[in-house]
Design a protein around this nucleic acid. Structure first.
Length: 818
DNA sequence: AGCACGCCGACT
DNA sequence: GTCGGCGTGCTC
């Protein structure tokens, strides 16, 4: 007997063993998608993980019910990749599978119920039934076939199970198990000539239609229309609308054998409408960089390309893609967010036409499934352009992986599991496939930069800007001084105000950037501007107004607010909160003529609103755009001559050891928005802490210096890139139970891991949907075995769950949290 | 993820 | 006294 270990796409640990019926012995292979029954009559699509002949002990096996499709299976390497992801990110394989497969590919059965034939005879007297049972009968008579969920919905209650089961026992209603294959090809009906007719034949047909006026008219119209528009066929709906407007006439013509309706499978995937053009020639600098990258690939699989903004990285990617395609291999081009990169899609399509497949989270599930199948079939897209989830698509001969803007934190998935980083997953996918990997960024992540410096990655820099683009002029303005002199105009310093005035008077545009990451409040000295940090963690502390204390999100330490500033000894701490919609009001007050719009969360999350806003700004219907970090990414507006950063200190003051790295990156990105073409743009950055090292270094455009300075501290405090982090989050409804469990877990882990354990500490949002949360952070220095550490952590958590202190506490792991 | 089993509070 | 709320554990 053959057995298959199957991964069920649920958040359950490990796999389940099923027996393979004889009829499937040859079609079931490792990677096959199979329908299995799991828990009662629920069915799931699982992935075969292993095949063997050892009869399992301790339980009966159920049989595999069906193989989804002959010959359709995940390749061994694809499966291997998914399992790596599962292990690395401490996520059950089922959950990885769930993330990897589009919903319609992991079809789940629903139990369909209906009245059995001849139920009337079985039920002599309806008074035998309970009130609930009669209610259920009522809805069945009305609706016929239904699944459980629908019955509940119609009766607006959740406890129909007992009554339904009673009816089932009485054999009045029956179960109809149907596995609905949701993946049905999308079809369209088209109308065309049944065959080619000569003009004499057509005359003959028309003569025969003298009495069928509608058909006669339809045929004449069609002859005229098809000639006029040079079309041979039309979609049926369009045909009826445009020609004759009579379904009956069409039917008649089909019956006469003049026309026919054909069913065509259509693709749900976007079709490229770009005209395929030439690849731009590279500048001398770009040419050299391309050569350097190719040179690195002789000995290294992964190369970091650091290219300043506007240096033309994309053009280099295009040349690399072209080369890869020439070798008959596939390319994966990863972007942090697809919505903001319409420009790149267009550009790639212009060069590679319909060889480019786009994959993103906004796609309909059926379209995703179609893309999946296409990539697994005989004619896959050679180039896949997509967001992080594109790493889950099947690849057959991957030759190149490009991760653009590799430092972007949106590559990391937070919720739900798997909490993976698209960049790191892509690197692993590339390695497993024997592909070359290119990471691109203007401000690389410290992790990648360190790998480049250490020689683990190849390192290539592109320092010259393409064309005549100039780096904008950066002006740091001290808000503290103007505040003291009472010269602020709302939230604008006189400098920013004057610049805005000048730009707006010239009919040019302004972007105002306001950071809004998280909700925390921090304390800053009103005199020297220094931000209060934790003594143990090198992270700014979060201020809680209601109890007037400071809390570190990393180690959990608490302290009172010092009476005077720790740095200058004279100033006092003031409460700072990243501002909100006030900016818009101030713009309206000081620039009543200006047309202003805000790009905040509700705009970004709505695709239509977002596009409308971008279009308005692009076409000049708006003068001032206020936004969060979204405005800093990937958008090019020619007429923007000024960018104002309202309060840069809120970037630096964020309670995260990466705050400064992010602040630097954001300021660089934001600067890149100003004056991309023509006249040199300006960036006004309003700060309080003028002396902050981040500002000194942004001004100098010295990434390496910035890295060197900050990395010393990272090393001292044992933060990435000098260590790896694993965050353990515990959740429970009871705050006290949770805290006790966390303390106990941390204590036990410390016995072995000692100072590598930080916390427990409260996250910035400590209670979500009635559940309290608490976090323990593990720092693993280089050289410590990560896989052994993970086993240890998991073991400790499992042990805790079994003791009374840990009862009911849920544990979540986040490997390499951001 | 569901769904059953099982234990405690608001009603007949 | 029961009904039914939800917490806990299992599913091949």
């Amino acid at each position: 007997m053959l057995y298959a270990d199957v991964i069920i796409p649920l958040g359950v640990e490990s796999f389940f063993t099923y027996s393979v019926p004889e009829e499937y012995e040859h079609s079931v292979t490792v990677g096959t998608l199979v329908v299995v029954s799991f828990v009662k009559n629920k069915r799931y699509t699982g992935v075969v993980y292993a095949l063997h002949t050892n009869p399992p002990v301790g339980f009966e096996t159920k049989p595999i019910e069906r193989v989804i499709e002959e010959g359709f299976a995940l390749s061994a390497s694809h499966l291997k990749f998914l399992l790596w992801l599962s292990e690395y990110y401490m996520t059950p394989p089922g959950e990885v599978t769930r993330a990897a497969l589009p919903v319609s590919m992991r079809l789940e059965s629903y139990t369909s119920l209906s009245l059995v034939n001849g139920w009337e005879e079985k039920l002599a007297d309806e008074s035998e039934l309970s009130r609930e049972e009669r209610e259920i009968m009522g809805v069945f008579r009305e609706r016929g076939e239904m699944c459980m969920a629908e019955v509940e919905k119609l009766l607006k209650r959740k406890d129909v199970y007992v009554a339904v089961r009673a009816l089932l026992e009485k054999e009045i209603i029956g179960i109809k198990e149907s596995v609905d294959d949701l993946f049905k090809p999308k079809v369209e009906r088209w109308v065309r000539w049944k065959r080619k007719f000569s003009s004499e034949e057509l005359d003959g047909i028309l003569d025969g239609l003298k009495r069928a006026k509608a058909q006669y008219k339809m045929l004449c119209d069609w002859v005229y229309y098809s000639d006029e528009h040079h079309v041979e066929c039309l979609p049926r709906t369009e045909f009826v609308q445009k020609i004759g407007n009579s379904v009956a006439a069409l039917k008649g013509l089909c019956e006469r054998g003049v026309l026919e309706v054909i069913v065509r499978e259509v693709s749900r995937l976007e079709v490229s409408e770009e005209e395929v053009g030439e690849v731009h020639a590279l500048s001398e600098a770009q040419e050299k960089v391309l050569g350097d990258i190719l040179g690195c690939y002789w000995e290294k699989d992964c190369v970091l390309l650091q290219g300043v903004t506007s240096s033309g990285k994309t053009e280099i990617y295009i040349h690399l893609i072209q080369e890869t395609l020439r070798q008959g291999k596939q390319v994966l081009y990863l972007l942090p967010e697809i919505a903001l990169t319409v420009q790149i899609v267009k550009r790639l399509r212009r060069v590679f036409g319909d060889q480019v497949g786009v994959y993103h989270s906004g796609m309909a599930d059926s379209a995703r499934a179609e893309m999946w199948r296409k990539q697994n079939g005989t004619n896959p897209y050679p180039v896949v352009l997509g967001v992080r989830s594109s790493v889950f698509l099947p690849y057959q001969r991957l030759g190149l992986v490009i991760v653009d803007e590799e430092h972007e934190s949106s590559y990391k998935q937070k919720e739900p599991a798997p909490r993976y980083n698209g960049r790191d997953a892509a690197i692993m996918l590339g390695k497993m496939s024997g592909a070359k990997i290119l990471l691109g960024s203007a401000t690389p992540s410290f992790e990648s930069y360190q790998n480049a410096l250490s020689g683990k990655y190849g390192f290539v820099q592109l320092t010259t800007r393409y064309g005549e683009v100039m780096m904008p002029e950066l002006l740091f303005v001290d808000m503290k001084e103007y505040r003291r002199k009472k010269m602020m105009k709302g939230c604008f310093t006189p400098v920013l105000y004057e610049e805005m005035k000048r730009v707006l008077e010239n009919g040019m545009q302004v972007i105002l950037f306001q950071n809004r990451r998280g909700y925390s409040t921090y304390l800053q000295c009103d005199r020297c501007g220094s931000i209060l940090k934790c003594k143990h963690c090198d992270v700014s502390m979060t201020y809680y107004r209601y109890r007037n204390t400071l809390n570190c999100h990393y180690c959990g330490s608490l302290r009172a607010v010092p009476a005077v500033c720790q740095d200058c000894g004279q100033g006092h701490y003031v409460n700072r909160t990243p501002g909100t919609e006030r900016i818009e009001e101030d713009v309206k007050q000081y620039f009543p003529e200006a047309r202003v719009a805000r790009m905040d969360l509700d705009v970004i999350s709505n695709k239509a609103k977002f596009r409308a806003l971008i279009d308005d700004f692009e076409s000049g219907n708006l003068d001032v755009l206020i936004g969060t970090q979204m405005v800093s990414k990937g958008l090019d507006f020619e007429r923007v001559k000024l960018v104002g950063v309202m309060d840069a200190d809120s970037l630096v003051g964020f309670p995260d050891f990466r705050a400064e790295e992010r602040a630097y990156d954001m300021l660089m990105q934001v600067s890149g928005r100003s004056g991309r073409k023509g006249e040199r743009g300006k960036v006004v950055i309003q700060v309080v802490d003028r002396q902050n090292r981040v500002y000194q270094l942004v001004g100098k455009e010295d990434y390496h210096g910035f890295y060197t300075l900050l990395s010393r501290e990272r090393e001292m405090f044992n933060y990435p890139p000098f260590s790896r982090l694993i965050q353990i989050e515990l959740r429970h409804v009871d705050e006290v139970v949770l805290r006790n469990a966390a303390n106990e877990l941390a204590r036990q882990m410390r016995e072995r891991l000692e100072r590598r354990v930080c916390g427990p500490a409260e996250p910035d949002v400590s209670r979500v949907r009635k559940m309290y949360r608490i976090q323990i952070l593990i720092k693993a220095e280089q050289g410590l075995s990560l896989s052994k550490l993970k086993i240890f952590l998991k073991q400790k958590c499992d042990e805790l769950a079994k003791t009374p202190v840990g009862k009911g506490v849920r544990v979540y792991f986040d490997v390499d949290p951001l």
